[in-house]
């Protein structure tokens, strides 16, 4: 028989939330829901209000920007265990790029409005979130810098 995991169990197993206080994890599970994206389906698109972020359980998602004359350019791909979307945390809470599933992708979508209001009420929780998302942003920024260097180009 297939084992069904609760959201709380999924969070406890994820690198992103593993060391979070279990009470917070329980609370977060209440702000999350399971979602599925078919290949080619958008998780979200540039310019949309950013009310959610996603934890990818299984699958691959391309972060893209549409460039006139070139179509969608993929900046990065993210996959199992990665978190997608930080605009829900930072004003003006608007999507900066598209996120599009490259393959069947299962994720947990978290209600950013709900979590933001909880973070406002509980600074410790807010700090935990900013610590985690700062790491995600720092890693993406560092990777983007290397990409900008165009290291493999003909010198």
């Amino acid at each position: 028989m297939m084992e069904t995991k609760t959201l709380e169990q999924l969070l406890a197993e994820s690198d992103f939330f593993r060391d979070l206080d279990p009470a917070y994890r329980q609370m977060l599970a209440g702000c999350g829901r399971n979602v599925v994206f078919k290949p080619g389906e958008y998780m979200f698109q540039e310019g949309e209000p950013a009310h959610e972020f996603h934890l990818i359980r299984k699958g691959k998602v391309a972060l893209q920007i549409k460039v006139p004359g070139r179509g969608p350019v993929t900046l990065q791909t993210v996959q199992d265990g990665d978190v997608v979307g930080w605009a829900w945390l930072v004003p003006p809470h608007k999507r900066q790029y598209d996120a599009r599933a490259l393959e069947l992708t299962r994720a947990v979508a978290f209600d950013g409005l709900c979590i933001r209001s909880k973070c406002e009420q509980d600074p410790k929780l807010g700090y935990e979130f900013f610590k985690r998302f700062a790491l995600v942003m720092a890693a993406r920024l560092s990777a983007m810098r290397l990409q900008l260097l165009d290291l493999y180009a003909n010198p």
Partner: peptide, 23 residues
């Protein structure tokens, strides 16, 4: 494998090679 740049037809990874190391 991963590439630094790709257009929409590419179904593989995009990102620097260092991003492959953690997993």
């Amino acid at each position: 494998a991963t590439v630094d740049r790709a257009m929409s037809g590419w179904r593989g990874n995009v990102g620097v090679v260092t991003t492959l190391i953690p997993r």
